[in-house]
Deep mutational scan, measured.
Amino acid sequence: MAASAHGSVWGPLRLGIPGLCCRRPPLGLYARMRRLPGPEVSGRSVAAASGPGAWGTDHYCLELLRKRDYEGYLCSLLLPAESRSSVFALRAFNVELAQVKDSVSEKTIGLMRMQFWKKTVEDIYCDNPPHQPVAIELWKAVKRHNLTKRWLMKIVDEREKNLDDKAYRNIKELENYAENTQSSLLYLTLEILGIKDLHADHAASHIGKAQGIVTCLRATPYHGSRRKVFLPMDICMLHGVSQEDFLRRNQDKNVRDVIYDIASQAHLHLKHARSFHKTVPVKAFPAFLQTVSLEDFLKKIQRVDFDIFHPSLQQKNTLLPLYLYIQSWRKTY
């Protein structure tokens, strides 16, 4: 089996927390979720979201995140109150960019949308954001926290390059993509939290790379249903696996070995980020709550012996909000 052949990389499970039942964490995340308004986002309300009498641009960002990046939404709820709305805006910006690729039928249209967001970032730093909910909220975040323009532009530029429907040539190319998107998002989150620390940035770099790799793995069944495969070609070739094997949902050992190798790289990034947690300011830990969902996925895929098409991998963990709150309460990542 794939797991038994390579099992030495995987460390002990961390979500089991001995003695936790003896201490009762304060009510927090679930209460916040219940208090949030929840009407559906419609095209009509989106168009009017920044106008008078609408929910408001902040509510639009929150709803977009809740629907399109639920794990990011849950993590954002546990940030300090003064930072929450800015991170909602930042993550909503990322969602807007991420959904361009799947929402257009022609690359030219995707490039036009990316050009809109490039100009939007430029206009935000000229205090002239367009009348668009996410743009307005992002402008507020930039003004409030003096966010670095370079990180925002890196996210747009990398998403634009990724409009080509090509597999990553190697794991390094996937890591570079993750660094310029997910890690950049974390650098900006640290700025919102008021953290300027080399060790925190180092952790953000590795956690962002782990996030990018896990996202690529999780999306494999969806991409396969659209006749697309984006997994690193070098690892596929190493194990003699073709793109057609993934399109046919082949579950042979060599296919699972490909998934094992890729998942192991995410695991190593996560492990390395945690190896120097004592040197990272505690104030930075809330920015890294996504490690909970990353670890949850890596454990699940290990349990199914790296069968990327196993139905259990597509099921939401209903206990994730609780695990996130516990992680926040324990002040760790």
Rank of each mutant, 00 (worst) to 15 (best):
Q327V: 05
T332H: 11
C61W: 06
Y260P: 00
V255W: 10
K118C: 04
M237L: 07
Y187V: 02
E106V: 09
G240E: 08
E179F: 03
Q302M: 07
K143M: 07
R330A: 08
L289Y: 10
E175P: 02
S103I: 10
L268Y: 09
K278D: 13
V241G: 02
G53S: 08
Q243C: 04
L152N: 00
P130S: 10
A178M: 00
T148S: 09
E173C: 06
C216V: 15
Q290C: 10
D252W: 09
Q265W: 11
R256H: 07
I262D: 03
I301E: 01
S105I: 15
L79T: 15
T220D: 00
W117Q: 00
I171L: 15
S45N: 09
T189N: 06
S205F: 03
V292S: 10
Y125M: 07
K67P: 02
D58I: 08
H202L: 04
V214A: 09
H199K: 10
C236Y: 01
P130I: 09
A49I: 15
A204L: 01
S103W: 12
P133A: 15
K299V: 10
D123N: 10
V142Y: 05
S50K: 07
P311Q: 09
R256C: 11
G51F: 09
I124E: 00
G212I: 02
L231R: 01
L152S: 00
E175F: 02
Y177T: 09
P232L: 01
V104F: 09
N170M: 04
R84W: 07
A210Y: 00
V156K: 00
Q243Y: 06
W151Y: 06
Q99W: 12
A48K: 12
K253E: 12
I235E: 06
S76N: 09
R274G: 02
E175Y: 02
H223A: 11
L198H: 04
H206P: 00
R330C: 10
E191P: 01
R226D: 09
H272R: 08
L65R: 02
G56K: 15
T318E: 12
Q211P: 00
L152K: 02
R169H: 13
Q290N: 08
I262V: 14
V95K: 02
A219V: 05
P321L: 05
A204E: 00
K209G: 00
Q211M: 14
H310R: 00
L247H: 04
V87I: 14
D252C: 14
K154W: 04
I109G: 13
L247C: 14
Q99P: 04
D261F: 05
G110W: 07
R274H: 05
Y325S: 07
A204T: 01
M237P: 00
I259H: 02
H202N: 05
R68N: 10
I213Y: 07
F297S: 05
P80I: 02
N250T: 08
L324W: 06
F285V: 13
I207S: 02
F230S: 10
Q314R: 10
A92T: 07
R248V: 08
R66L: 06
L152G: 00
H223G: 05
M153L: 13
N254G: 15
R84K: 10
L231D: 00
W117R: 02
H145G: 05
D102N: 07
C61I: 14
K140F: 02
L186E: 01
V121R: 04
V100W: 06
K166F: 13
I259Q: 01
D307N: 08
A203S: 06
R144F: 06
K331R: 11
V121Y: 02
C61M: 12
Q132H: 12
N94E: 04
I259E: 02
K118R: 10
R256I: 03
H202G: 04
A203I: 06
V280C: 06
K118P: 00
A92Q: 00
A287W: 00
L90K: 02
C216L: 14
E173M: 08
S264Q: 06
K119F: 03
S293A: 12
D157I: 09
L186F: 11
R159I: 05
C61G: 07
M237I: 09
G53C: 07
S242P: 09
H272Y: 10
G240Q: 15
F246G: 03
T189K: 06
K253A: 13
L238E: 15
Q265P: 02
D305A: 06
L289G: 07
I124W: 01
V241W: 01
L77F: 04
S105F: 15
R256E: 02
S103Q: 12
L62I: 13
Q327H: 07
W117P: 01
T279V: 15
D58Q: 14
F309N: 08
C126D: 15
E122S: 13
R227D: 10
K283V: 11
A47N: 07
L319D: 03
A200I: 01
R218T: 04
G51Q: 12
V304S: 09
A273K: 02
V121P: 00
E71R: 02
V258W: 02
H223M: 14
F306S: 00
L298N: 02
T318W: 14
L147S: 01
G224W: 08
V46Y: 15
F230C: 11
N146L: 07
L190A: 01
K283H: 12
L97S: 08
